[in-house]
């Protein structure tokens, strides 16, 4: 219970780092292509709670510690796409001049995900789809993704109190080494099965962009967040492991100094906001804040 409380505080701290909100003129557009909206296969997940380990890095007393974990409640339903955005759907945005073209030679198929897309590409698609349909689509937060993924969400906690930095490092490396990198061939939607919420292909070989930035938080002895630094040039991509990926990268590759193991493919799926005036207001706030 205490842990849950700490988590709540930490979450509040993380939510609070955004720059002061500037209220932009509010325009509620109820037009849009309803047919395109209706085409989106959406799964609505009822309100509930999950056990969630915060993303980002945490330090206490000047050394890295395991991220806090606790119960995270969702008071509203989360409406999220059944499967990743397909290459064919992404191409519609490209054809409209609003999205960057996919890598040459990509098969434009309705049953395969758009891959080798950056966070910016994914965000541009969300903007385009929202404008086109008049309904707000956006990338999920890391917490929303975890909620949707349920048992497919991988807790990336590394319980070690060791002052030896290599212990955590090697443990993470060994865990990420479990990924079968040879299994890079794309599968049709459903090829990696459904989770208990009916969502397809979570934690398959396509990692999914989230809107969550890389945040480093210093905790006090009481577990409260003392301060944090955030870097929104790095966003979390979720999948077989939680990956921190530079936002303009389309194809995360192995090698070099960072001796970690990156995602195999980068894709995304979107959350659909209920089309309430409150949601549109939130959207305006978010846009003004970013």
């Amino acid at each position: 219970m205490l842990l849950a409380l700490k988590l709540k505080i930490a979450v509040a701290a993380l939510a609070g780092f955004a720059t002061p909100l500037a209220v932009a003129p509010l325009v509620i557009d109820r037009g849009g292509d309803r047919a395109l909206d209706a085409q989106q296969a959406i799964v609505e997940i009822a309100p509930g709670a999950i056990s969630y380990r915060l993303s980002g890095e945490f330090t206490r007393g000047g050394r890295q510690v395991e991220a806090p974990k606790g119960a995270l409640r969702f008071d509203r339903p989360v409406a999220i796409m059944l499967h990743q955005v397909s290459a064919a759907d992404y191409q519609l945005c490209v054809d409209d001049g609003a999205c960057r073209a996919m890598t040459a030679g990509t098969a434009i198929r309705a049953d395969r995900p758009a891959i080798e897309v950056s966070w910016h590409d994914a965000s541009a698609y969300a903007e385009w789809l929202s404008a086109k349909t008049g309904v707000i689509y956006r990338l999920p937060t890391d917490a929303e993704w975890a909620y949707a993924a349920a048992s497919r969400f991988k807790d990336d906690g590394l319980s070690t109190d060791s002052t030896d930095p290599s212990v955590r490092w090697i443990a993470r490396y060994v865990r990420e080494s479990e990924i079968d990198r040879a299994a890079a061939a794309l599968r049709g939607f459903g090829g990696f099965g459904a989770n208990e919420r009916g969502l397809l292909d979570l934690a398959g070989n396509v990692w999914e962009w989230t809107s969550t930035c890389f945040v480093r938080t210093a905790l006090g002895d009481d577990g409260r967040a003392l301060n944090h630094t955030s870097n929104c040039g790095v966003r979390i991509a979720e999948g077989q492991h939680r990956a921190y990926v530079t936002d303009f990268i389309r194809d995360a590759k192995a090698g070099g100094c960072s001796a970690g193991l990156p995602p195999i493919h980068l894709g995304f799926r979107l959350v659909r906001e209920p089309n309430t005036p409150m949601a549109l207001l939130r959207k305006q706030f978010a846009r003004a804040a970013s």
Binding site: D164, P165, S166, W169, G255, G256, C257, A259, G260
Partner: peptide, 9 residues
Amino acid sequence: KQPGVYAYV
């Protein structure tokens, strides 16, 4: 002399 993951490149 030190534990960890080394890249040999």
